[in-house]
Computed example of a mutant assay.
Amino acid sequence: MLLASALLAALAFALAWPVPIVLARAAWPSRAPALALFVWQAVAVAGVLSTLGALVTFGVSGLSPTVSDGVRLLIDGVMSGTTPAGLGALHIFALCCAVLFAGHLLLSVLTTVVRTERERRRQHDLVALLSAPDSTVPGARVMEYPAPVAYCLPGAFRTATVLTDGLVKALSSDEVHAVIAHERAHLTQQHHLLLLAFRAWRKALPWFPIATRASDAVGLLVEMLADDTARAESSAHSLVSAIVAVATGGGGSPDVGVADATPQSAAPRVTRLLRDRNPLPRVVVFGVLLAAISLVCVPPILLLAA
């Protein structure tokens, strides 16, 4: 069981430090953003499972040769109000760390969800008050503001695509259509839910590269996915012009789930749109998928084998 705990701890360290750094610097995610998002989720899930698994496995190692029996003896001891024989100070410390770690992550997710949804409701009320539908821009609400700004506003019961009149005046009709298609892609593909999870993780573990790198990388990848959807409906040139206008226009959207174009995100997106499409070979896609699925399966397998 100690071997399993050591292997899980090593995996947790790798997924918390070197792996996200290498993945964030890799060039292939821009060629397959959906696949890269799946890999980031696999790394996150495997990292949490391996961390909790390492702590729990070590914590019950003094109670029984197997994890299942050790957990059963621990639960029996807790229910009876006694300390099981063989449970030392280090074991108790590891189990307390596991409980605190799980509780901290869960609390971070819950507080982030509640605060974000509260802010979204407030933004929806402001949008309803300060904007109006425009016959020249179907499917969007237009707000009076000189800077070119566009963002989607998700919500539990209502969604909105918001543009400023500064953007409508600055862009051509094709460019406005590309912007709307991009923002609608965020809503239909539920990108805000994915970003919310990684944002909560970043707030919970701001000192770990897995949290900070993942949040930044996922934010850029969802923009690329939305770009792909918009490019299927509009020309790449129109989309690029719109991205540059929004990124350099000096405006900003509320932080409610999906970021708009920024100077930092615009450069890789524009470069990607202007060059020829070069998707990953199918054999590479299959290999990466298999590796990501295997990564998630490793912690449960080690726990069952312990």
Rank of each mutant, 00 (worst) to 15 (best):
G47A: 10
G47Q: 10
V48I: 13
V48Y: 11
V48G: 12
L49I: 04
L49W: 04
S50R: 12
S50L: 12
T51A: 15
T51I: 01
L52D: 01
L52A: 09
L55Q: 12
L55R: 08
L55K: 11
T57H: 02
F58I: 00
F58V: 00
F58A: 08
F58E: 07
G59N: 11
S61D: 06
S61A: 14
G62K: 05
G62Y: 03
L63S: 01
P65R: 02
P65S: 02
P65F: 00
T66S: 11
T66A: 09
V67A: 05
V67L: 15
S68K: 08
S68H: 01
D69A: 13
D69R: 09
G70L: 04
V71I: 11
L74K: 04
I75D: 03
I75P: 04
I75Y: 02
D76Q: 12
V78Q: 11
M79Q: 14
M79F: 10
P84S: 03
A85V: 01
G86Q: 00
L87V: 00
G88A: 15
A89T: 05
A89S: 10
L90H: 06
L90Q: 08
H91I: 00
I92D: 10
F93L: 14
F93N: 11
C96F: 08
C96S: 15
A98C: 06
V99H: 02
L100F: 10
L105W: 06
L106K: 04
L107F: 11
L107S: 15
L107E: 15
S108P: 04
V109A: 14
V109I: 09
V109W: 10
L110D: 07
T111G: 08
T112Q: 14
V113F: 14
V114T: 07
V114M: 13
R118M: 09
E119V: 07
R120L: 09
R120I: 02
R121V: 01
R121I: 00
R122D: 12
Q123S: 14
D125Y: 04
V127R: 06
V127N: 12
A128K: 07
A128C: 07
L129A: 12
L129E: 13
L130D: 05
